[in-house]
Lab assay of single mutants.
Amino acid sequence: MDTYKLILNGKTLKGETTTEAVDAATAEKVFKHYANEHGVHGHWTYDPETKTFTSTE
């Protein structure tokens, strides 16, 4: 398992979190669920070199 990072740049919520996942697709599902639960619906990007997802509203 690898550690993946999420950076949230929402209108009402900003911050970072991490998750352990078997691959990027699994981490993306976890992070999108997390963002949706916190009302963040933004544009998603992923940097495979740093294993970092960013959601920007």
Rank of each mutant, 00 (worst) to 15 (best):
N36V: 13
D23M: 02
F31N: 00
W44R: 00
T52N: 01
S55G: 06
D23K: 02
S55Q: 08
F31L: 08
H38W: 11
K11S: 11
I7S: 03
Y46N: 00
Y4H: 04
A24K: 12
T26S: 13
T3Q: 09
K14S: 11
V40E: 04
Y46G: 00
Y4C: 05
A24I: 08
E20S: 10
A24C: 14
V22N: 09
I7C: 07
T45A: 10
K11W: 09
D2A: 12
D47W: 04
E20H: 10
W44S: 01
V30G: 03
A25Y: 09
Y46A: 00
S55P: 02
H43P: 06
E49V: 10
A21M: 02
G42K: 02
K51D: 01
F31K: 01
T12P: 03
F53Y: 05
H38E: 05
T19D: 01
A21Y: 01
K29L: 11
E20Q: 14
L8F: 11
A21R: 02
D47C: 09
D23S: 07
T17N: 04
E28A: 09
N9C: 15
H33Q: 15
H41V: 13
N9V: 14
A24P: 10
H33P: 02
W44D: 01
T50V: 05
K14Q: 13
A27E: 00
E37M: 14
V30L: 11
K51W: 03
K51M: 07
P48S: 10
T19G: 02
A35Q: 03
A25F: 09
K32I: 09
A25H: 09
W44T: 02
T54I: 08
D47N: 10
G39C: 07
Y46D: 00
E16V: 13
K29E: 10
Y34V: 05
G10H: 13
T17G: 04
L6H: 02
T50P: 00
H43F: 14
T52M: 03
D23R: 01
E57R: 02
F53I: 01
P48A: 12
T56P: 03
K29H: 11
T12W: 14
T3P: 03
L6G: 03
K32W: 08
T12G: 09
H43M: 13
G15W: 15
L13T: 11
G10K: 02
D47Y: 06
G15M: 15
N36K: 14
F31Y: 01
